[in-house]
Amino acid sequence: MKKFMIFYMADPAAFETMMQNSTPETRKKGMEAWMHWMTAHKGSIVDGGAPLGKTRRVDANGAKDVKNGIGGYSVVQADSHEAAAKMFSKDHPHLQMPGAWVEIVEIMPMPGM
């Protein structure tokens, strides 16, 4: 089985607006949808992941705060990219947010490890 890093993506402004407008009821409903999805795919989930916070970029010129569209991550295993993508159908909880998308990146094996 191959492993894939899943990035839950959205426009930062849209995500912030959604969070500001959420209610305890919508958060509970959203968490229930996530738990249902995770239970349905428990055999393929290596790491359920978590939401991600602020980003700090470090390069040869130093460190600075930056914004990106990564809202969270998971790690899944599947036979192929296509098989991994099938886990993220249009009814996936993250895709219920307007303008959201999922990026699926294969985790390549390290030679000799």
Rank of each mutant, 00 (worst) to 15 (best):
G69Q: 02
K54Q: 13
M1I: 08
K86I: 07
D11G: 05
P98R: 08
D47W: 07
M5Y: 13
Q77E: 15
T17D: 07
M9K: 09
E25K: 02
R27V: 15
K54Y: 12
H81P: 04
M110Y: 05
V105C: 11
I6H: 04
A60D: 07
G71E: 08
M31Y: 02
E16V: 06
E32S: 14
W101S: 09
M18T: 05
K3D: 04
M9L: 10
Q77S: 15
K64G: 07
F88G: 02
G71L: 06
A33W: 05
I45R: 05
G69T: 00
M97H: 04
M1Y: 06
H36I: 12
L52T: 13
V76C: 06
V75G: 05
V76L: 09
T39P: 10
A60V: 01
L52H: 09
V76W: 02
H36A: 14
M31V: 13
T17G: 10
E32Y: 12
V105R: 13
A50M: 14
Y73T: 07
M31K: 11
H81E: 09
E82W: 07
M1P: 05
I70Y: 01
A85N: 10
F4K: 03
K29N: 15
G62D: 08
E103N: 04
H81W: 07
M18I: 12
M18N: 05
F7I: 05
V46R: 03
M87K: 11
S74Y: 05
K54A: 14
Q20R: 12
F88V: 05
M38D: 08
L95D: 04
D11N: 10
N68K: 15
I104Y: 00
M113E: 12
V66C: 15
M5H: 12
N21L: 12
M9C: 11
V46N: 01
G49V: 10
D59G: 01
D79F: 08
D11A: 03
M97P: 01
R27F: 15
D11E: 03
D59C: 11
T17K: 06
V46T: 07
I104H: 01
T26C: 14
K3F: 12
F7L: 07
K90A: 09
I70C: 03
Y73I: 02
F4W: 05
P51V: 14
H94I: 06
D79T: 08
K3Y: 12
E32W: 11
M38S: 00
L52M: 15
I104W: 09
P24T: 07
K3E: 14
K42C: 04
V102F: 06
I6P: 01
M19P: 01
A10G: 06
K2D: 02
W37M: 03
W101F: 02
P98E: 06
R57M: 15
N68A: 15
A10R: 01
A40K: 07
M19H: 02
I104V: 06
D59P: 09
M9E: 05
G72K: 00
M35G: 00
K67D: 06
M108F: 13
S44L: 08
M31G: 13
D11K: 10
N61W: 00
A14Y: 07
D65S: 05
G53P: 03
R56W: 11
A50Q: 14
Q20M: 14
A14E: 10
H94M: 03
H94A: 03
